[in-house]
C-alpha cells in the first residue's frame, strides 16, 4: 500500500510536482545570481566574472551534482505534470457549454500545464543556444582573450592579445602562433608540446553576440531583437507559472497555516515577479547597450 501510495497516488504525484518545482525555484535563484554578472560588472571585468562563473558551473563537483538534480527535476516535473494534465483532462470527458472559471480562480492557476509546456520549449531552445554550445558543440568555442595596451621598451604604445587563464599569477600567455589550443581550452607551446595554462571558454561573447552586442568587433546575431523579445516573453510565462506555482507547492506539501500562508503567498508573488524580471532585464540591457 505505502509503496504504491508514494509512487502512484494522485497526492504523491502532486508531492513530486511540488518538491521538484521548489527545487527548480532554488535553481532559478542560483542561475539568476550568475547571470547578473553580465550586467553588474561591465567591460573586461564583467566578462571575466561571467566566464569564470560559467566555468565554475560546469566544473565544480558539487554544482555538477546539483545540475544533474536540476536536469532530473526538469524532466520529472515535465513528465509528471504532463501525466497529471492528461489525467485531469480525462476526468471531465464532456465540457460545460458555458463556463465562467474566472469567477473563482486565476488564469495563472488554471493554465499551469500550458505555461509549463511553453517554459519547457524555452528551456530546450535556451540550452541549445548556450548550454549545449558550451559543453558539446563540435564547433570550437571561442576562447576568452583580452587586449592589453602598454608601451614597449622604446616607449611605443603596443597592444597584446592575451589569453585569460586560470593561473593569472604566471606570465600572461599571448595569442601567437607559438601557442596552440588543445581540447577546447588547454594552451600548449606548439614546439615542445608543453601545457602552459588553461584558458576560459568565452560564453560571455556568445551571449553578448546572441543578444546583439559585439565584443571586440565580433559578429553579432542578426536576429538579436527577436531573441530578446522571445526571451522576455519566456520570462513573462515563467512569471505566471511561478505566481501560482510557488505558493501552490507549499499548499501541496501541506504547509498551510493561517499565520504563515499569507506571507508565503506574498513572498511567492514577489519571487514570481522579481526572479523572471531579473532574468529578462539582462538581454534587454545588453541589447540596448549594443
Amino acid at each position: 500500500m505505502s509503496k504504491s501510495a508514494i509512487l502512484s497516488s494522485s497526492i504523491a504525484k502532486k508531492y513530486w510536482m511540488a518538491i521538484t518545482g521548489l527545487f527548480l525555484c532554488l535553481f532559478l535563484v542560483g542561475h539568476l545570481l550568475g547571470n547578473l554578472q553580465l550586467i553588474f560588472k561591465t567591460g573586461e571585468e564583467g566578462r571575466r566574472a561571467f566566464n569564470e562563473y560559467a566555468y565554475f558551473m560546469t566544473h565544480n563537483i558539487f554544482i555538477k551534482v546539483l545540475s544533474y538534480a536540476t536536469y532530473i527535476s526538469i524532466l520529472f516535473h515535465s513528465a509528471d505534470g504532463l501525466m497529471l494534465a492528461i489525467q485531469n483532462k480525462k476526468a471531465r470527458p464532456v465540457n460545460y457549454v458555458y463556463n465562467n472559471p474566472s469567477a473563482n480562480s486565476s488564469a495563472a492557476s488554471r493554465k499551469m500545464a500550458v505555461l509549463g509546456s511553453a517554459i519547457l520549449i524555452f528551456i530546450v531552445l535556451h540550452m541549445a543556444n548556450f548550454w549545449w554550445k558550451m559543453k558539446y558543440s563540435s564547433d570550437p568555442m571561442p576562447i576568452h582573450t583580452y587586449v592589453v595596451s602598454s608601451t614597449d621598451q622604446t616607449g611605443q604604445p603596443k597592444t597584446d592579445t592575451l589569453y585569460y587563464t586560470h593561473t593569472p599569477s604566471l606570465q600572461p600567455i599571448p595569442t601567437n602562433p607559438m601557442i596552440v589550443v588543445k581540447n577546447g581550452t588547454e594552451l600548449y607551446f606548439k614546439d615542445v608540446n608543453v601545457k602552459v595554462g588553461d584558458a576560459y571558454k568565452d560564453l560571455h561573447k556568445i551571449v553578448m553576440a546572441f543578444f546583439g552586442k559585439s565584443v571586440n568587433g565580433a559578429p553579432t546575431n542578426e536576429y538579436a531583437l527577436f531573441a530578446v523579445i522571445l526571451y522576455v516573453l519566456a520570462m513573462a510565462v515563467l512569471s505566471f507559472h511561478l505566481i501560482h506555482g510557488f505558493s501552490s507547492a507549499f499548499q501541496t506539501l501541506g504547509l498551510n497555516h493561517k499565520k504563515y500562508t499569507p506571507s508565503i503567498q506574498v513572498f511567492g508573488k514577489i519571487f514570481a515577479i522579481i526572479v523572471p524580471a531579473g532574468f529578462a532585464i539582462i538581454p534587454v540591457l545588453i541589447f540596448l547597450s549594443r
Binding site: 494522485s10 504525484k13 476526468a91 472559471p101 492557476s109 501560482h244 501541496t252
Partner: peptide, 11 residues
Amino acid sequence: EGFGNCTNTGA
C-alpha cells in the same frame, strides 16, 4: 473513481 488531481486553483 476517476476524479482528477488537485492543482490548487482554489476554485
